[in-house]
Design a protein around this nucleic acid. Structure first.
Lengths: 112, 112
DNA sequence: ATTCGTTATATTTGTAAAGATATAACGGTA
DNA sequence: TACCGTTATATCTTTACAAATATAACGAAT
């Protein structure tokens, strides 16, 4: 039976979590559904939790990651900015390359 | 204000956690104190939690990581094996190299 | 035989995170 | 104006996990 190495990475800004796997999942779901409430349903998390996650992302970000609108056609919605799209793909890249890196490093354990 | 990238790595065996930062901290404390109860006190965690952590390590490991003795001189104690010492240093190496790797990767976010 | 400080384990208690619920505000549309 | 589905927010409830507590078993030393 061989070992598996797992990881969890996140980015902090001023001691607050800015981006992590959960937040990136949420951003992707917003991108697909066009609204925070639909995104929360698709991820099976409460709206409240989703809202807090998104709020923390936008508060830590240097530029807006989503544009949220209240009222109007369809009641409103949330839209990912270009900046947000870039963040998602950069985070995914880092995460995937980290997995590759760690799989290689795991050999240090396996050869003991 | 710049970003910090953080990580948490762990090694699983058969869907159980084998080694992680908490478990490695515990092993180091056992190495220093010679007993599980003293180690748990030095880490400010309950004996119960420490015992479960150590138990999971030894159950997942291919060879014993500690030798635990009940009763006898001083009431007993726990001792790290040579194999355990090797695991600790290998894990630390992987963890540190992961930090270096991720700090470099963070530039992908910062230059957006 | 008694004492000692452990390991080992079960049971109870406390607490912080998650979830559920409720409601206000909003701004297009009809 | 009334309606709609959304964002935004507060408050209450639940629940999972951590912590505290209690106790048995152990074996060397005295």
């Amino acid at each position: 039976m061989s070992y598996k190495i797992k990881s969890r990475i996140w980015i902090e800004s001023k001691n607050n979590v800015f981006l992590g796997e959960g937040r990136v999942h949420l951003l992707k779901a917003i991108q697909e559904t066009g609204s925070l409430s639909k995104a929360s349903k698709s991820l099976n998390i409460s709206y409240k939790k989703a809202w807090h996650l998104l709020d923390s992302v936008n508060k830590s970000a240097k530029k807006p990651v989503t544009i949220n609108s209240i009222g109007g056609k369809g009641g409103g919605g949330a839209e990912i900015t270009e900046y947000g799209i870039s963040l998602i793909s950069a985070f995914d890249e880092i995460n995937k390359s980290c997995w590759v890196f760690l799989d290689e490093q795991l050999k240090k354990i396996e050869r003991i």
